[in-house]
Amino acid sequence: MELLKRQETWNITYTHALGETASWFYVQLRDHGKLYGKRDAKSGRVLVPPRAFSDQTLEPTTDWVEVGPGGRIETFTIVYEEFNGLPPPPYAFGYVKLDHADTAIGGFFRGVDLSNQEVAAEQLKIGTRVMTKVAEKRIGDVLDFWFEPSTD
């Protein structure tokens, strides 16, 4: 028998409130190109990206701490497959513990030739020092910055 299909697309736009903590973080990034974390007073750990509370201690975070621009790679991946709605491959991204931070923040890695998988993976291996770069035009978003392997 004839079997039919129907194509349906979901199209809802969401306007999410970022709240005071993330707003302050993104304004500093947008206007001054600087990254900050927020300290959980109970554990002393600096959370980057900053959260209003620690999900470990459930205490509100207190003071702001400038972090980076240097850091170390905590993990990475290099994507060679195309996915709908995601960037064209190849691209590399992962997580970096910025200097003075205790947690890692996600971002793209640039300045690495991704054509040879093994060589690229070696250049991004865990522990590699990186430098944070910020875009000239910034909108207050995670994509305003990225990481490049540093030689220091």
């Binding site: 993990t75 205790d102 947690t103 890692a104 996600g106």
Partner: peptide
């Protein structure tokens, strides 16, 4: 934790 970056760095559980 929800945040991947909290499962690395220093002092994580």
């Amino acid at each position: 934790t929800y945040y991947l970056g909290d499962r690395m760095g220093t002092g994580f559980t």
